[in-house]
Design a protein around this nucleic acid. Structure first.
Length: 880
RNA sequence: GGGGGAUUAGCUCAGUUGGUUUAGAGCACCUGCCUUACAAGCAGGGGGUCACUGGUUCGAAGCCAGUAUUCCCCACCA
């Protein structure tokens, strides 16, 4: 059967992925080998694969597959995150579409719907990862709400509470009026928006007609004002000391206070203070003991303090109150103003600073070891620049608001008793809670008397123990797995979640295992489209990864996303990169087609050119292997890929295979074919992490493999120069030959000499030269002969290489003028070059202070240039 | 407002502690080829004052200072 001309990925991908699964190659159990562990950044359970996942998981897979080949016990733990806000929002939306309101359901009913949703949509993303070739240990798939995982999250809460690290307090929090929950600072995105600055005048109490004017962006909060504040140094307002102002519309009297928090330059220099609706105002309120008047309901509508605006949405109220202020003569003017407004990362609702009772983690002391372990290099960041960002955050760390007013998640294990929410105990179960409450309150409670806190924990409060809890390191701390797999090796994630997740995992690692959770953190960039825009669903500029895989093959897409994405840099993605990847897999495929087309003839002697080609490629392969290993060690994955790409395409296909290729329908000798297959197999090994499917497919094409002899578990090549002399010498000799061949090809092209027409080459030896690759030059240059002479050859195209002159005679008269021009150009260049070299050498300070070796190099450059100039001048003269 | 990066070919990036030709790669581009592995290919080629201005040095893409442009992070400016 004829081998197809192009590689067809679909069949190979299905065949080999299921084969790998059947053989259990991705499954890991602790053993005597060195462990190599990666935990996946768990995607949202209801998520679908996007290009960001694609990049992130391809990198992880490359690392894991290479480690597996290096003989390590590779374990890549997959799983999903319950993603409380995002998932709950989706479930609420789905129910709403069915006409069910969340408020009509009990908590248990809602959770039943949520789990149903999770069972239906959860894990789609994991199936998609298999299409990519991800070599995860699927038997270990975890979910942050698995029973044992949940238990560990609750244990951590209880433990931190007992240690006094968790407290409950009234704070200004970021309130999401759409999701009806508090958010952590990290979940709020600040955007610049065009808004208006309203200048509103307040009458001074007990005055005839004395007014002061404040500037505000939120006139609706006037109803919650409890003071006017001015800077004590502001002479304009010095006369207001001890006075009061009257709030428009509600006509309340409020004090005028003085604090240097107020910027005299901004607006009118008068600040209205609304402690319930602004963080700074809240602080001022505490300082001056002001009344706190909350005018908003939790859904962003005004409450009874909003008087006749009660029930209106805050943004509607802003417009209507503007009208009323204007009609009543309070509004002096409005001006355009740009300010920053916080938006919910999840719902995109405008965040409302709101006072509420929440749970917090005291981060100061907890985070100290985590700061140090990154700064001292125990944990390495790639690229290193992110250390700065990390340090800055850790130095200014604030307490972490961990309660969320949601149902989907881990319910806070606090149990209230008695009236109100003042008295509570923290316990794992209701039984324990009852016992504790009885003791604490000195009265007896029975089942049902206690009310568990309604709130759930922030999602990140569960994911910060991910590297521990996937191995049950908290619920069963002495188990064999946690001891074997932890600390994990490499974490691959996005810089956006450095604080949400990376920093907190490090904190939890120190707190609970006394150890770092991973040794390296590789930060990927953002995937952008051609125009530099972030890929997003709303812009519709993100290609569907699965469609890309169908079109270009998984290997092609893997190469496409890796080819230009150094750590920490954004990836400007275009599907043409996948095309490049696909072309690459096709190139490999066709190389295999060529090798398989050759018939062996046992008694055929090995040509000299093949012998030299093998010697060269062995040296080349080892040189590149070193450089690839080096790139991997530095986490320069795209560099490792590029070296591999060039080694395969340029060195192996374009040079090596052409050098050993027998004539059409001619047989090949056995020694050459055997060596070639070994080379091919070595190339497949280094390709395996990048293009696992085509590598496996071809791995089996060269010989019958015993059960278990698959490339996924083959050995990574070891640096081994073998026989054949010093590699650097061979490489240098080859590049000299390469230069000569390129020159010959150039002459062919300029003179329109067809490739199949043989030409002669004469060499005028001006100095010693190595002839070991002459057979290769003859073959690659398609020469009828290569001869050494002492004379110039008339009527030739000529070139100079390493001080020796080369002539390719050409029957018809050559274009003398063109030759002359070419040589004159070269002469000018060489002279310029010589001048720059001589300038250095004539400088006594250079000769005196530069290292000897550097000076010697310059001297050689000078000598070479001089001899070349002599030759060129000679040639030009002879042409005249 | 504070902090951290970045700036090298049309695009994306390398360039190890300053010294191997007058700076490299991939893609793109130009020219010529359907040469029986591959046109998803082959061969050849063009293209850069290393953002700018000074400084240090025998020597600077690299070190220092300033300027410009740009990205990111943090922060409560109404």
């Amino acid at each position: 059967m004829e081998t197809p001309k192009t590689y067809e990925p679909q069949k190979a991908e299905e065949k080999w992925y299921s084969h790998w699964m059947e053989k259990g190659y991705f499954h890991s159990e602790p053993d005597e080998r060195e462990a190599y562990t990666v935990v996946i950044p768990p995607p949202n359970v209801t998520g679908v694969l996007h290009m960001g996942h694609m990049l992130n998981n391809t990198i992880q897979d490359v690392l894991v597959r290479r480690a597996r080949m290096q003989g390590k016990n590779a374990c890549w733990v997959p799983g999903t995150d319950h993603a409380s806000i995002a998932t709950e929002a989706k479930v609420v939306q789905k129910l709403r579409a069915e006409g069910i309101k969340k408020s009509d359901l009990t908590r248990d009913e809602f959770l039943a719907h949520a789990f149903e949703w999770k069972d239906k949509h959860g894990g789609i993303i994991l199936e998609q990862l298999k299409k990519l070739g991800a070599s995860c240990d699927w038997d270990r798939t975890s979910f942050t709400m698995d029973p044992e995982y949940s238990e560990s999250v609750i244990d951590v809460f209880i433990d931190l509470y007992k240690k006094g690290r968790i407290y409950r307090g009234v704070r200004m929090v970021n309130w999401d009026p759409e999701a009806l929950t508090a958010l952590s600072d990290e979940e709020v995105l600040h955007k610049e928006v065009n808004s208006k600055l309203f200048h509103v005048r307040y009458k001074i109490a007990d005055s005839e007609d004395q007014w002061l004017t404040i500037a505000t962006t939120r006139p609706e909060t006037i109803l919650g004002d409890s003071a006017i504040c001015v800077n004590p140094n502001d002479v304009r307002y010095a006369n207001l000391k001890g006075k009061e102002a009257i709030v428009p519309i509600c006509n309340r009297k409020i004090p005028i206070i003085f604090d240097d928090y107020v910027d005299m330059e901004f607006g009118t220099g008068c600040l209205k203070v609304t402690p319930a609706h602004d963080t700074n105002d809240y602080d001022l309120g505490k300082k001056f003991n002001l009344e706190t008047i909350d005018i908003l309901n939790d859904n962003g509508t005004l409450n009874e303090n909003g008087l006749h605006y009660e029930g209106q949405d805050r943004f509607d109220a802003r417009k209507t109150i503007e009208k009323e202020l204007d009609e009543k003569g309070y509004l002096i003017k409005t001006e355009d103003h740009i300010n920053k407004v916080g938006y919910s990362e999840r719902t995109n609702a405008v965040i409302e600073p709101r006072l509420s009772l929440q749970w917090f983690v005291d981060m100061k002391e907890l985070s100290a070891p985590a700061r140090d372990s990154v700064m001292n290099g125990d944990i390495k960041f790639h690229p290193e620049k992110f250390k700065n960002t990390y340090r800055h955050w850790m130095d200014n760390i604030k307490d972490w608001c961990i309660s969320r007013q949601l149902w989907w998640g881990h319910q806070i294990p606090a149990w209230f008793y008695g009236e109100g929410n003042e008295n509570f105990v923290v316990a794992k179960t209701e039984e324990e809670a009852i016992a504790m409450a009885c003791e604490q309150a000195g009265q007896s409670f029975v089942k049902g008397d206690l009310r568990q806190d309604e709130d759930v924990l922030d999602t990140w409060f569960s994911s910060w123990v991910w590297p521990i809890s996937v191995f049950n390191g908290l619920t069963d701390p002495e188990n064999e797995e946690i001891k074997y797999y932890y600390p994990t090796n490499d974490l691959v994630t996005a810089p956006e979640i450095m604080f949400f997740w990376v920093a907190r995992m490090i904190i939890a690692g120190h707190e609970y295992l006394g150890e770092i959770p991973f040794k390296n953190v590789y930060y990927t960039g953002i995937v952008r489209d051609k125009l530099g825009r972030k890929m997003s669903k709303s812009l519709g500029n993100s290609p569907d990864p699965i469609e890309l895989i169908n079109k270009y093959g998984a290997d092609g897409v893997r190469v496409g996303v890796l080819i230009s994405s150094p750590a920490g840099n954004d990836l400007p993605f275009d599907s043409s990169q996948c095309e490049q990847g696909r072309n690459f897999t096709n190139k490999i495929w066709n190389a295999h087609r060529l090798v398989h087309s050759w018939e062996v003839q046992e008694d055929l002697p090995q040509p000299e050119s093949s012998k030299m080609a093998i010697k060269w490629f062995r040296a080349k392969f080892n040189q590149e292997l070193q450089s690839i290993n080096n790139s991997f060690d530095k986490f320069k994955i795209s560099e490792a890929l590029m070296s591999t790409y060039k080694l395969v395409w340029d060195d192996f296909c374009s040079w090596y295979l052409e050098m050993i290729k027998p004539g059409y329908q001619h047989p090949i000798d056995k020694a050459t074919l055997d060596a070639t297959i070994l080379f091919f197999e070595d190339l497949l090994r280094i390709l395996q992490p990048f293009t696992p499917f085509v590598a496996e497919e071809l791995w089996h094409s060269f010989r019958d493999r015993a059960d278990g002899e698959d490339i996924v578990v083959a050995q990574w090549p070891v640096f081994n120069i073998g026989k054949g002399g010093a590699p650097s010498e061979t490489l240098a000799q080859f590049s000299a030959a390469e230069e000569i061949i390129t020159n010959i090809r150039n002459i062919r092209k300029k003179n329109n000499i067809a490739n199949k027409v043989k030409v002669e080459l004469f060499v005028k030896k001006n100095k010693e030269l190595d002839t070991s690759f002459d057979a290769v030059i003859v073959k690659m240059g398609n020469l009828s002969q290569l001869e050494y002479t002492t004379e110039e050859v008339e009527n030739s195209n000529s070139f100079i290489s390493d001080g020796n002159e080369y002539f390719v005679p050409f029957g018809d008269a050559i274009d003398v003028e063109a030759e002359k021009e070419k040589m004159t150009e070269e002469l000018e260049y060489t002279k310029g070059f010589l001048t720059s070299v001589q300038r250095k050498l004539q400088n006594e300070k250079f000769v005196g202070s530069a290292p000897e070796q550097v000076v010697a190099i310059e001297r050689k450059k000078e000598a070479d240039a001089l001899s070349k100039i002599a030759i060129l001048e000679d040639k030009i003269a002879s042409l005249n």
